[in-house]
């Protein structure tokens, strides 16, 4: 019974939380927040989902391989944007000098590399949180079988 309520509630809540997380990520350069906090919120929502249903449901949504790829790609996007700046003639992680379009301040699509990097960080943090939590919990099942 309790479980049912929890599931219903989380089924309703999780999308909103994820939406909020996305908002925090995408508005990192305009309002408080950013890749880290937004990513953590998305990750927490996934964890909540997994807790409310079960682990298998969670892993169905995001498989191990996918989270592995997401995790690495987050960092790679970051470093890649930095290296791109070098190819554009600036120093590592250059933004304006490298010629990234800054856009109109205040718009969603502004800030040049900031946008990309925030996105990368957000993906990375969310994936990380999920992986971490899964691996902590999963271990339990593995050892349970083991014992």
């Amino acid at each position: 019974m309790e479980d049912l309520i929890l599931r219903y509630v989380s089924r309703i809540v999780v999308p909103f939380v994820q939406l909020y997380g996305l908002y925090v990520v995408f508005h990192g350069h305009l309002s408080p927040g950013g890749g880290f906090s937004g990513g953590a919120i998305i990750g927490a929502s996934m964890i909540l989902y997994a807790l409310a249903f079960n682990l298998a449901a969670g892993t169905k949504k995001i498989s191990h391989d996918l989270s592995l790829i997401l995790e690495s790609s987050g960092g790679l996007i970051y470093a890649g944007v930095g290296l791109l700046a070098i190819f554009l003639g600036a120093n590592f992680l250059g933004n304006m000098v490298a010629g990234f379009p800054l856009g109109t301040p205040g718009n969603l699509f502004s800030g040049g590399a900031i946008m990309l990097i925030t996105l990368g960080v957000g993906i990375k943090v969310a994936a990380t949180m999920i992986t971490l939590f899964y691996s902590l919990i999963e271990e339990e099942q593995a050892t349970d079988e083991h014992h």
């Binding site: 925090v24 408080p32 927040g33 950013g34 880290f36 906090s37 937004g38 953590a40 919120i41 990750g43 927490a44 964890i47 949180m129 971490l132 939590f133 902590l136 919990i137 271990e139 339990e140």
Partner: peptide, 22 residues
Amino acid sequence: AITEAALGAGVTTLLLLAAISK
């Protein structure tokens, strides 16, 4: 504040809970 709420209060707590459950 947001980061602390999400990471410090949220994720850390979840992780601690997971660890305790284990």
